[in-house]
């Protein structure tokens, strides 16, 4: 479904270009869950955003290569066409739920606007669907909570809302960029379970970005290990855990002493 070839990402800082992703290639099949693991600065988040063609605000970034989504090169689309892909076909969940919701709109409005934009629903129909979605991600009293503002929600609850937003249009691919890093350990497991459940219910593919092998375990089938803009190793998750080839992968695995407990709780 997703075939990425020769992907490069080049930041342009004050006239001096610096390449942060070096001609990488990867695939994601329909419904498949794939992990991307690496430290911060390894290029994994930039890769994820490249698939959405989202540049950080105010920076200039150039992408090269091809990102084939169902045979269509996303890098060749114009901005208007790309907007129809974002949210509708490929959706994304970000790292920091505390900062990812608009503080001056109610939680419900922030799901409504997505549904009205992509699904052509009326205000009323959108709200009905919003309440279903909130229930689906485990928010109690969704009819009432939909009219609350983000500051009335805890971090874990907010991430549930953001997941509801992301899956609202039943995308083919969900990109989750460090979805649990900012959360308490107990909440982390709940959010991961929620992602797993929704993936099955909707039948979407999952691209899980993390620095933590513990999160990957039990969540995904295949893993790509990224280091300084390159994919240094990839393979089935069990094989990689059992016999890491690359030194960097070994170092990352060694850095996760709680891997077994995390796997169990996930």
């Amino acid at each position: 479904m997703l075939e990425v070839r020769d992907l490069t990402a080049t930041f342009n800082r004050e006239g001096t270009p610096s390449q942060v992703v070096n001609r990488i290639a990867f695939d994601i099949a329909p419904g498949e869950a794939v992990g991307f693991v690496g430290e911060s600065g390894s290029g994994k988040s930039v890769t994820a955003r490249a698939v959405m063609r989202l540049a950080p605000e105010g920076s200039s970034i150039a992408w090269g290569g091809r990102i084939l989504f169902k045979g269509q090169d996303l890098l060749a689309l114009d901005e208007r066409q790309m907007r129809d892909v974002r949210g509708r076909r490929i959706a994304m969940v970000f790292q920091d739920p505390m900062a990812s919701l608009n503080p001056v709109m109610t939680v419900g409005q922030q799901i409504d606007d997505m549904l009205m934009r992509h699904m052509g629903l009326s205000q009323g129909a959108a709200r009905k669907r919003t309440i279903e979605l909130l229930a689906q991600v485990g928010i109690r009293d969704p009819e009432i909570r939909a009219d609350d503002y983000p500051h009335q929600f805890s971090g874990g609850m907010r991430q549930r809302v953001l997941i509801a937003i992301a899956v609202s249009c039943q995308p083919d691919l969900l990109i989750a960029d460090e979805p649990t890093t900012a959360l308490d350990v107990t909440v982390q497991a709940q959010i991961l379970r929620l992602l797993m459940r929704l993936r099955k219910e909707i039948g979407m593919a999952l691209m899980l970005i993390t620095h933590d092998f513990g999160v990957i375990a039990g969540m995904v089938e295949r893993v790509y290990v990224m280091h300084r803009g390159d994919i240094v190793e990839s393979g089935q998750v069990d094989a990689l855990f059992a016999d890491p080839k690359h030194d960097y992968t070994k170092a990352l695995l060694a850095a996760v002493p709680r891997i077994e407990t995390a796997r169990r709780s996930a």
Binding site: M52, F94, D113, M114, R117, H118, I165
Partner: peptide, 23 residues
């Protein structure tokens, strides 16, 4: 503009005028 929720709004594929006005 540099807040995460604006990035989320863009990731939602919202129209530019919606992002400008509501976000």
């Amino acid at each position: 503009s540099s807040q995460d929720y604006v990035m989320v709004a863009r990731a939602k594929g919202l129209l530019a005028r919606t992002i400008l006005g509501n976000y």
